[in-house]
């Protein structure tokens, strides 16, 4: 069997190797994705995000159990930050999902955010394509926290679950900071804790304000206690209903197109930038330009425009 057939058959090693190829951005990555792309497009992609300690992984673990119960195959990509100092990382998210470690229908891959060109989202996007081609029905992307990178990663999903928990002391901050913008469904986890109701009220308040004109578009809010396995069935039901709504209204299709469009932009921009960088490196041109500008002989913007023109000329020649 060749590499593509093995991935398509969902063979563990082949899928894992393909993910490594994507992660390491090795030479064959683009060819691989080009071959896999037509095989995908079937999986539903969920993004799951929330602060550290919000119980994301436990919730994902419980959702996997339910999805497996329906006979679906599930791929998980858990993204954790790399250390800015050593470049290393500890990837521990799958710890809470280890009860599925021996299940052939579940594939969990931990990814470090590394120093990817164009951010971690590029690698994650292609990792999703690999799992999609391998026939996983659901692909869950899990990220810690809600920084810029995470928002980008969440942009790769068909729908996003934002997990909020009581007792973190940052509920109101999170709401103020507009983090809620990225969520499709809000999950209030640890609902067994007293303050859970308070967060619920706050979330409802924000949604009521936002959708005062068109309350039918309000995002669903679910209450779960993942550690106690409570509320997960209801959550799944809400996800299913929401997905159906996305699908029937054509929003799912539109989202996917928008995503691809954004990706085309990003990849083109990356490629151009990388060319410009390569070009700049030749002869260490910029140092001379700095001298030229500092000498006051050339007005800076006009000077840069001139260089740009010559870049395009040279690029055309190549």
């Amino acid at each position: 069997m060749n590499r593509i057939d093995s991935i398509r058959a969902g063979e563990l090693r082949a899928v894992a190797r393909a993910l490594t190829c994507v992660e390491n951005d090795s030479g064959s990555r683009e060819a691989l994705i080009d071959e896999l792309f037509p095989l995908g497009g079937r999986a539903l992609v969920w993004g799951v995000t929330g602060a550290p300690g919000s119980g994301k992984s436990t919730l994902v673990d419980r959702l996997i159990t339910r999805l497996r119960g329906r006979g679906s195959r599930v791929g998980v990509i858990a993204v954790d930050p790399s250390s800015p100092f050593s470049g290393g990382a500890i990837l521990g998210d799958r710890l809470r999902m280890q009860s599925h470690a021996e299940d052939e229908g579940v594939f969990i891959r931990s990814m470090a955010s590394r120093g990817y060109l164009g951010g971690v989202s590029g690698a994650t996007g292609d990792a999703v394509r690999v799992l999609d081609a391998a026939g996983f029905d659901y692909i869950i992307i899990e990220t810690i926290g809600v920084g810029q990178t995470e928002i980008e990663v969440m942009g790769l999903s068909d729908l996003v679950l934002l997990i909020l928990v009581p007792g973190m002391g940052d509920e109101i901050q999170a709401l103020k900071a507009g983090v809620m913008e990225i969520g499709d469904l809000f999950v209030i986890n640890k609902s067994d804790k007293d303050e859970a109701r308070k967060i619920r009220a706050e979330v409802d308040y924000v949604l009521d304000m936002k959708y005062a004109e068109n309350p039918q578009d309000k995002n669903p809010v679910a209450m779960t206690a993942a550690a106690l396995d409570q509320g997960v069935d209801d959550l799944l039901e809400a996800i299913d209903a929401y997905t159906e709504k996305l699908r029937s209204s054509g929003r799912l299709e539109k989202r996917r197109r928008d995503r691809l469009s954004a990706e085309i932009h990003r990849i083109l921009a990356e490629k151009i930038e990388s060319q410009v960088r390569g070009w700049l490196r030749v002869d260490e041109r910029t140092q001379q330009w700095v001298d030229a500008i500092l000498d006051g002989v050339h007005p800076p913007y006009r000077f840069i425009q001139k260089q740009l023109d010559s870049f395009f000329r040279e690029a055309k020649v190549r």
């Binding site: 790399s82 990382a89 990837l91 710890l95 280890q98 470690a101 021996e102």
Partner: peptide, 16 residues
């Protein structure tokens, strides 16, 4: 090992 620059996957105790 993380501090030495490796990516480490840790899965906790009692693994089969």
């Amino acid at each position: 090992l993380k501090d030495a620059g490796y990516e480490v996957i840790y899965t906790g105790i009692r693994q089969s």
